[in-house]
């Protein structure tokens, strides 16, 4: 052996390498547990629910009898809620994010607001349900309507949208704002023509992920009383409604096996919708990233 390498401490190196391998395995185990649990869940649901995944599920209203029972009103209710929630929460959430990042002074008050928003993002959803019940259902007398539900959900997802949009906006380099201002742009021109186009993929990704969170939420809507048996489609904003997770919850709490299967098939539909939404978030992000 060449004298250069003689002082190598073989024992110590062997120990270090062993530690390396052990840690590596530990991380693999950690990842596998998550993946396996998800796989088990999906397989279990597919086994229970696939047989019920038939046109009836989409075209029929729920009924007391499992045979022929569907979740048409729940699917439509979820979609209606999404349609109301999306523009409202987009405008409010992205607007607040732009204000906080671009307009608000960097002072103690702003930091206080910031802290509050981050905290709100972690508040249990049932609390939003109580707020919605007080504010929209009672105070604004919207009753147990589609509108009250959508507004409550908007409150729930707003902090998530604000925080993620802020992060996207903050990631736009200052030099890009400078370039715009140096050409004589006003604040709004800079925000609308430079900052937003540069951050839109991040903003949209956050919005879609927030929407998929809302689609899967049950608690706040239970609170405001969407927990009813609905066998019609809402025709106005003031109509009562139900959504997919509530329908699933309804079915699962019934004793008969057939309803358990129905619940499983409902979960498949909900999961598919979530998957589509998350996938479209990825597509959107890639599309804007590739463009330039």
């Amino acid at each position: 052996m060449s004298p250069i390498f003689q002082d190598a401490n073989r024992q110590q190196i062997a120990n270090r390498r062993r530690k390396d391998v052990i840690i590596h395995l530990l991380f693999i185990v950690a990842t596998s547990i998550g993946v396996l649990a998800l796989c088990a869940l999906i397989i279990d649901i597919l086994m229970d629910g696939l047989s019920r995944l038939q046109p009836d599920l989409f075209t029929n209203f729920p009924s007391r009898k499992a045979a022929g029972s569907g979740m048409k009103s729940a699917i439509v209710g979820s979609i209606y809620m999404l349609i109301i929630m999306l523009p409202v929460s987009f405008i409010l959430g992205v607007g607040a994010a732009i204000y906080l990042e671009e307009y608000a002074g960097k002072n103690r008050f702003t930091r206080l607001i910031q802290l509050n928003i981050s905290t709100l993002a972690g508040v249990p959803s049932i609390v939003y349900g109580i707020l919605g019940l007080t504010l929209f259902v009672r105070l604004l007398a919207l009753e147990r309507s589609l509108l009250a539900g959508a507004f409550t959900m908007t409150l729930l997802v707003l902090p998530i949208i604000i925080v993620s949009a802020q992060e996207a906006i903050r990631a736009v380099p200052k030099s890009r704002r400078d370039a715009s201002f140096a050409l004589g742009a006003t604040k709004w021109q800079t925000v609308s023509r430079s900052v937003i186009p540069s951050s839109i993929s991040g903003i949209l990704t956050g919005v879609i992920l927030a929407m998929s969170r809302a689609i899967g939420e049950t608690a706040p809507l239970v609170m405001i009383g969407a927990m009813t048996y609905i066998n019609f489609l809402p025709t106005s904003l003031k109509d009562s409604f139900t959504v997919m997770p509530i329908q699933i919850y309804n079915w699962i709490s019934k004793p008969q096996l057939e309803f358990k299967e129905l619940a499983a098939s409902g979960i498949i539909v909900l999961l598919a919708l979530l998957l589509i939404m998350n996938f479209s978030a990825i597509l959107l992000r890639n599309k804007y990233q590739k463009k330039y």
Partner: peptide, 25 residues
């Protein structure tokens, strides 16, 4: 007009970079 230390084009086409200023005004 101003040119900065680091080249700072917008993430837009060459055309839209040049047209950015005139469009502002």
């Amino acid at each position: 007009g101003m040119v900065f230390q680091q080249p700072n084009p917008f993430p837009k086409s060459i055309y839209d970079n040049i047209a950015y200023g005139p469009r502002l005004h």
